[in-house]
Amino acid sequence: MKSFTYERPSTLSAAVQSAQRPGAKFIAGGTNLLDLMKLQIEAPIHLIDISRLGMNTIERTADGGLRIGAMVRNSDLAQDAQVRTNYGVLSRALLSGASGQLRNLATTGGNLLQRTRCSYFYDLSRPCNKRAPGSGCSALGGFNRMNAILGVGGSGAEAPKAGARRAIYASLFIRLIWRWRCARLTQKWKRSEPKASRG
């Protein structure tokens, strides 16, 4: 891991101000960012800890929706009474991802900003458009049975705002569908598994 300076600002505006520094990144749960920093795929030189700035409530909105704070932990969101009652698929999706330990650390904001799981993104010896825009996509001709979208280049910063937003919605939708499918498959597999081999 590369060295970095660490700061825990006491207000949101101070955090936003600090984010202007070159090489700065926000950290909250850290389950994705620290993992990538250990592999030096991410190498921020300044970390801004936003985990204690509030933004951890789940509120009903006037138009009947739900407003979820970016710092709400995955486990808290999955267990929220309103989510359990009215948004069961969200609760199920959250609980089918990661482990109990990770869900206790991971936040909603971080979950939406999670980097791709493509194995080529993690492989520093291979080209990857997500990691190094313009270098190429190794998944196109490589092992890609785990991938859903191929060959998308560039970074969010380069895309127009609406495009980036659409991409985030699309990726969230795909992630939800994917988790739901995984959950279904797991249940199927569990049902079909002979009782004797169960650990």
């Binding site: 300076t5 520093l124 010896s125 997500k130």
Partner: peptide, 24 residues
């Protein structure tokens, strides 16, 4: 050991110079 191809470096981030270890 085999060298890592130059074009695969992380170009999506600005690459500020490494800083010294920080103690807190």
């Amino acid at each position: 050991p085999l060298p890592i191809p130059a074009n695969t470096a992380n170009a999506s981030m600005p690459a500020p110079a490494d800083i010294a270890p920080q103690l807190m």
